[in-house]
Nucleic acid binder design. Sequence first.
DNA 1: GGAAGAGTAGACAGATCTGTATAGTTGGAT
DNA 2: ATCCAACTATACAGATCTGTCTACTCTTCC
Lengths: 188, 188
Amino acid sequence: MTKASARSRLLAAAREKFYADGIAATGVDGIVESAGVAKMSLYNNFGSKAELVVAYLEARHQEWLDLYSARLEGAETSLDGVLAVVDAYIDDAHAAHARGFRGCGLLNAAAELPAGDPGRRLVAKHKADVEELIRGHLSRMAGEKASRDGAEEISFVLEGAMARAGLEGSDRRLRTAREIIARIVGHL
Amino acid sequence: MTKASARSRLLAAAREKFYADGIAATGVDGIVESAGVAKMSLYNNFGSKAELVVAYLEARHQEWLDLYSARLEGAETSLDGVLAVVDAYIDDAHAAHARGFRGCGLLNAAAELPAGDPGRRLVAKHKADVEELIRGHLSRMAGEKASRDGAEEISFVLEGAMARAGLEGSDRRLRTAREIIARIVGHL
DNA sequence: GGAAGAGTAGACAGATCTGTATAGTTGGAT
DNA sequence: ATCCAACTATACAGATCTGTCTACTCTTCC
């Protein structure tokens, strides 16, 4: 069992601190100390804090995709597929719950970035991807327009529930959203 | 026409900068300079940056209530009332649009605050208030459970649309949400 | 055995941050 | 006229921030 690389230790520490305390409020010294590596290892691996932030955003995006893939296994119907998306959100909430659930890490990060920032575009793309995944599932049981409209509505419900859940520090809103979304799919 | 007080000038400058750049990324020196007042005036009026943040959150909450009140005038049906809430969100988006629309200022602020922070609770209460306003409008045309469930669903759609609109820098998602919400109310 | 790559420890530069101290100015109200 | 409150201007303390520099230590692979 070989020791984890400085890079992966830094990413893990950044993930923890960026999510719990916010990006601007988290200093590189704190990340370095928490990761147990030398400060130069951060700058050798990432070049700057800004690049570490981008790596963090990409890692969280990938993390969500992995949760979704796991939930998608064995899904057969359109409803199964859509609920895999919802359940990936709920899994994400439980994963974050360890040190205080604060909602979607990507959306929270975007809230700190200025209007034209590349990181904001990355988050916008992630949310568009989620909506597109839902649309894909719906398109197997509904027409093109109904799928597109349904996916947009469902993605709104999901995102809104995530925001409220984060504010309240509970997954209750997400569980309610799951029921609402199942009903919407059923009525399509 | 007497010159505006240092306090109100500071609040206006803080509003602009906190929204556009985020709270942690905005320094008190920048606020003071932008407000055109002495630094001591900030500490005389607010005591600390943290208290200025609280004042900012309360001001934004009140600002939204004013937009909502204006939209509520002349509303008669339940649908009118619910749409007044939605239109207040759209008005808010347009007001912010001047220097780059970045979504709901209160939700963005909450994203920067740690899990138990009083500011986060304030934002959570604001969102709960909005849901409660919607419930009140629905209760004039529907039963208690239908009103409560409907208000929750509508508030999710509205919040999710606001988040997406902020990421995309456009009010298009909010206009779509307005249609979705009108349809939901119609089917109640 | 020796080169190369990854990582370490700690000091340091320079900027920026919040908050304070101090002395002076201005504009009314009584 | 004078007193008071609000406000200004500037300097400063002390902490913290990102990023750099240097010299050293491992491990691995050929």
